[in-house]
Design a protein around this nucleic acid. Structure first.
Lengths: 270, 270
DNA sequence: ACAGATCTACTTGTATGCAAGTTAATGTGA
DNA sequence: TCACATTAACTTGCATACAAGTAGATCTGT
């Protein structure tokens, strides 16, 4: 059962055999065994750009959970065939951002409540470790840049610029990961917190919380600048705790947006 | 730009309008707003079973990194069309288990060395937290089951049954996550450690290490049984550290299996 | 014998058509 | 008026055909 996918070409890897079938080698297109694995910046592919557009619409909750989406409609509206649309939707299905029901329909994914508590715990655990590393390794130049980011955040609070604040928020956490020399773990956290972000955008009142979040960020920054690993970790813990307080109200307001696959009263402390 | 994917149906959500186009609702097929989100056990889909088969072959390094794979060949050998094969390959490409070079070819993914150090750190960090939770929450019944698993492991060592040992190893870690009531984080970890597992299967000598791993597991178990969170965490740290010792030799033996996108001499302590 | 241009078989990406199944609307009976 | 069978339009999953591009084999000139 394990050799059923062995390459079918009869010629082994040796090159001097009579090549019954041309054995194709690695395309020199791809990273030539060398140093860089830099992603291809431009989209280049129809299904890629469709994927990104759909994903952005779902993550911004511009498309609400449960909304039916039709491969045919999207294909017609974009003037392409179903094939690249379908490829994009299948990718989103792997991320649980859409739910595909065979022979019936496709829907913007409802948020699985059972995923949120452990996603929150995992994110907090990793970011506590990351910020410890950052407090240990930060250079004065990096601290200056981070301080500028904090000031930007308070500027956004003053302007009441929510989307601008979210952007600076994201840069803050990403920068800490870079300072801690763990940038790929931040990438991983971004996938972990996907459903958490959707939950927050759906249920949390953004206005009041901005100032508090900026304060929490400032305390984390201060600990990093002071090189106090333990304090930085504790402040990050505070910053990333307390999500469960919003569960009951958020779900009660819009139950149709969620897959209620856990007992909301039994959520552990996060 | 953000409303380009709004559903096209002219009818709003209200049901009393004259339905120019039938507005389709959620299929009662899918989880009916209820409690369970249980995955559909049976494969049901051609592309699903192709995906699982290919993934197993790649993870077991039965298909070596860099091996060219052809959608047409697989389709012919399985007696299906390219469509489901292609869907499976695209899923694998998202996991970096295959590399697709447009208009050129598809290859079993080489292991990106730059991903390994941070994956190892993230995994260790999460499992240290999980085992602390397990040491805190373990019931005596759970401890008995875990003890039986440890005994199985030593049995496998005695029998020199490598694949059997790997299975018990996996059960050990998964059981700890269940005891710690964080089973979904173990699922996360399984995706994190994908490339690490491939690296180990390619480069590590399994024979000698089995006994040592079983011993490390036994020490973790003892700390859990004693309810000693700190000790359990430390033993897990020891168990999951030291991968970097194998980097240089493993890569030197088979450089073509890896994307050497980092300087091997600059790998941090993991 | 060797270097370079040309050619041809192969690759992935997309378009299109069909099959099986589901769901909402409609028809039918009481 | 209501319950139930029928039907028709829509859905996703798969098969097939074509387009654009790549790379190895071959041919040509020296």
């Amino acid at each position: 059962m394990s050799d059923q996918f062995k390459p079918l070409s009869t010629a082994p890897t040796a090159v001097m055999d009579a090549p019954v079938t041309r054995s194709r080698n690695r395309a020199p297109n791809s990273s030539p065994q060398g140093v860089e694995t830099v992603a291809l910046g431009a989209s280049q592919s129809l299904s890629d750009s469709l994927y990104r557009g759909l994903r952005a619409s779902i993550m911004s909750v511009d498309l609400l959970p449960g909304t039916p989406i039709s491969e045919n409609d999207i294909a017609r509206s974009k003037g392409v065939s179903r094939t690249p649309v379908r490829a994009a939707i299948l990718r989103l299905a792997d991320e649980a951002l859409v739910e595909v029901v065979p022979k019936s329909g496709t829907f913007v994914g409802r948020i699985p409540l059972s995923a949120l508590p452990e996603a929150s715990i995992a994110r907090r655990t990793l970011e506590m470790m990351i910020v410890q590393s950052a407090a240990r390794l930060a250079t004065s130049a990096q601290i200056d840049l981070l301080k500028a980011n904090i000031e930007e955040q308070f500027e956004m609070v003053a302007r009441d610029d929510i989307s601008g604040f979210h952007e600076q928020d994201s840069i803050f956490h990403k920068s800490i990961a870079e300072i801690g020399q763990l940038p790929k773990i931040w990438k991983f956290i971004e996938t972990i917190k996907t459903q958490i972000d959707r939950f927050r955008r759906l249920t949390l009142p953004h206005a009041g919380r901005m100032a508090q979040v900026a304060d929490e960020h400032a305390r984390i920054f201060a600990a990093i600048a002071a090189g106090d690993e333990e304090k930085a970790s504790q402040e990050m813990h505070r910053h990333l705790s307390g999500l469960q307080n919003y569960f009951a109200n958020g779900v009660a307001a819009h139950p149709q947006y969620f897959i209620q696959d856990i007992d909301l009263s039994k959520i552990p402390n996060i």
